[in-house]
């Protein structure tokens, strides 16, 4: 399925959030501000990581974007259409957090259900279902009712059902949860492939390593407020001040040494001069985890 709203989107973002707020009443009738004045613009072909501790407002944002709850203030648009209109989801692949699907259906039946909801023809559905099940390593379970699926299998089927209609925009709520290391690698590879195809991916997570590896940009949300939006490359590379050198000397011993940027050239020359083998030079920066923890700690102060 191709997008019919691509042209409208080029100028602005595919996901456009302005002044979005959500307030609700807790069971004790206290007002809870789940989301405060969120502005976010995500462009075509971007992989955006939405990072935040549990309960920070990531799911609230995603639920507003997918029309499950209504914002108290502000606006949110998907592909140029307001999210309260179901038609904005015609070019969206959405994976809910800890998803559950009609478990009396088989994987193939569920994919057909989703495909028909997107107006795909049965023959296309059949072909695409085979492809996406293969992509997520679920062919063996295609004809089985989902009642018997493991958590990881359900999660992978959840990803498969976002792919079947080949949308332009993907929203994944905690896509790595419930997956084993093999599954995580599979999902990371999947998102990288989507990026290569020029798709837009917006996903929430609380695991910094995932963001570091696959995202273009990251937004950090803490206590309902967006605290920072940055390019991942800027955070990881830009803050590199030191390098770790591993030098193997003639007697076989390996010496590790942290050197500053200024001293790097001198040290490398010295190592060569001492007949040592320069085994590794690793840039040591503040990594994303430090960056994230700094923000969280600042908020908590």
């Amino acid at each position: 399925m191709t997008s019919d709203s691509n042209c409208a989107v080029e100028s602005s973002g595919l996901i456009e959030i302005t002044g979005l707020s959500k307030t609700y009443r807790s069971k004790k009738l206290a007002l809870v501000e789940a989301l405060k004045n969120l502005d976010l613009l995500i462009g075509k072909g971007e992989v955006f990581g939405f990072l935040g501790p549990n309960g920070a407002g990531k799911s609230t944002t995603i639920k507003i974007l997918t029309g499950q709850i209504r914002q108290t203030a502000g606006s949110a648009q998907l592909a140029g259409q307001t999210v309260s209109d179901y038609r904005c989801r015609r070019d969206l692949g959405y994976l809910p957090e800890n998803p559950v699907f009609y478990d009396y259906l088989t994987a193939t039946e569920y994919l057909a259900f989703v495909g028909r909801a997107f107006g795909m023809s049965d023959s296309v559905i059949r072909q695409r279902a085979g492809e996406v099940l293969g992509l997520l390593d679920l062919q063996h379970a295609a004809k089985r009712p989902m009642r018997g699926f493991s958590k990881g299998m359900v999660q992978r089927l959840g990803l498969a059902q976002t792919l079947i209609h080949d949308p332009q925009v993907f929203i994944f709520d905690e896509p790595m949860s419930g997956l084993d290391p093999v599954g995580r690698a599979l999902v990371k590879q999947l998102i990288k492939d989507l990026k290569r195809q020029g798709k837009t991916v917006f996903f929430s997570t609380h695991i910094t390593a995932d963001v570091e590896e696959i995202c273009d940009r990251v937004g950090v949300i803490v206590q309902g407020q967006l605290r920072a939006v940055d390019k991942v490359s800027d955070i990881v590379i830009g803050d590199t001040d030191n390098y770790r050198l591993h030098v193997r000397h003639g007697d076989g011993s390996v010496i590790e040494e942290i050197v500053s940027r200024n001293m790097l050239k001198q040290k490398v020359v010295n190592a060569w001069a001492d007949q040592g083998a320069l085994e590794k030079v690793v840039p040591v920066g503040r990594n994303l985890e430090d960056y994230f923890l700094d923000i969280v700690n600042n908020v908590n102060k």
Binding site: Y86, C88, R89, Y94, V100, Y102
Partner: peptide, 15 residues
């Protein structure tokens, strides 16, 4: 109750 609505209403289906 079982949150099937999250996956179903996330599709382009009007309520």
């Amino acid at each position: 109750e079982r949150r099937y609505t999250a996956s179903v209403l996330g599709l382009p289906i009007p309520r």
